[in-house]
């Protein structure tokens, strides 16, 4: 198991006078607001969430909020950014290392599934709540999608197999998104790691064919039973 995703909820400061330097207070306020927007949006829906709800949840004043963010959307997008940055960093750690490509791809997928399983709120926020923000969702989606296809391609170009389909990387990212989305909707995010063997198989086939994909599926099953 990987450790918990960088947990925005860990940031707490004592209320009242504490004599801490200003930038530390601000950093703490920002992180508390980011954690709060995720929690509130997941519990009552992004649409119904108000800035007042976020303030109440974070224990931060209105003035401080508007020093840090333009509005609710700005705050939600910033929270999303922190979450996706963290996920990418963790995936990068296991993916952009020496070693056979199919195995690195399997590891990257394992980390991704564990990351979402460890934080169902983050999963629901990214996959369901953010899709209701209106036009901003499209650029958000496009940016995330491009980010992870680029990451996969980076690892591929070094020594990876040449995909039989020109957009095999897009197929892979689409499979991951579609599967996680489905589990989020069914509220089974904590079970995501169990999907690793089948999803590995699915992802790898367009790149390396059925036989090698089956071998990685076996490897995923073995690592699960260890």
């Amino acid at each position: 198991m990987i450790e918990e995703p960088e947990d925005l909820r860990r940031w707490r400061l004592p209320r009242g006078r504490h004599g801490l330097p200003r930038e530390i207070v601000e950093r703490s306020q920002r992180e508390r607001l980011l954690a709060a927007v995720v929690r509130v949006a997941v519990s009552k829906g992004y649409d119904a969430t108000t800035v007042a709800d976020i303030l109440g949840e974070a224990g931060v004043g209105r003035e401080s909020f508007y020093e840090l963010f333009d509005d609710k959307l700005d705050c939600a997008l910033a929270a999303h950014q922190v979450l996706v940055d963290d996920l990418e960093t963790r995936v990068r750690t296991v993916y952009t290392v020496p070693g056979p490509w199919p195995a690195r791809m399997r590891e990257a997928l394992a980390v991704t599934l564990q990351w979402f399983a460890a934080d169902p709120e983050a999963a629901r926020f990214t996959f369901v709540e953010l899709s209701t923000v209106g036009p901003a969702f499209r650029s958000l989606f496009q940016a995330d999608y491009a980010r992870f296809t680029r990451l996969i391609d980076e690892g591929l170009s070094e020594e990876g197999p040449s995909p039989a389909l020109t957009q095999a990387t897009q197929l892979a990212v689409s499979a991951i998104l579609a599967r996680i989305y489905e589990e989020v909707v069914l509220e089974r995010v904590d079970e995501l790691p169990r999907l690793l063997p089948d999803l590995t198989y699915n992802l790898l086939i367009p790149f390396v064919g059925e036989e090698m994909a089956r071998a990685e599926r076996e490897a995923a099953l073995e690592s699960a039973s260890e």
Binding site: R138, S139, F141, Q142, Y145, Q167, Q170, L171, V173, S174, A175, L177, A178, R179, Y181, E182, D198, N202
Partner: peptide, 18 residues
């Protein structure tokens, strides 16, 4: 899995539009 294939197609289309 046909359900997954369906979801993949949907995400591909969504990305092309986005």
């Amino acid at each position: 899995d046909p359900r997954l294939a369906f979801g993949q197609a949907q995400v591909l289309l969504l990305n092309q539009i986005a």
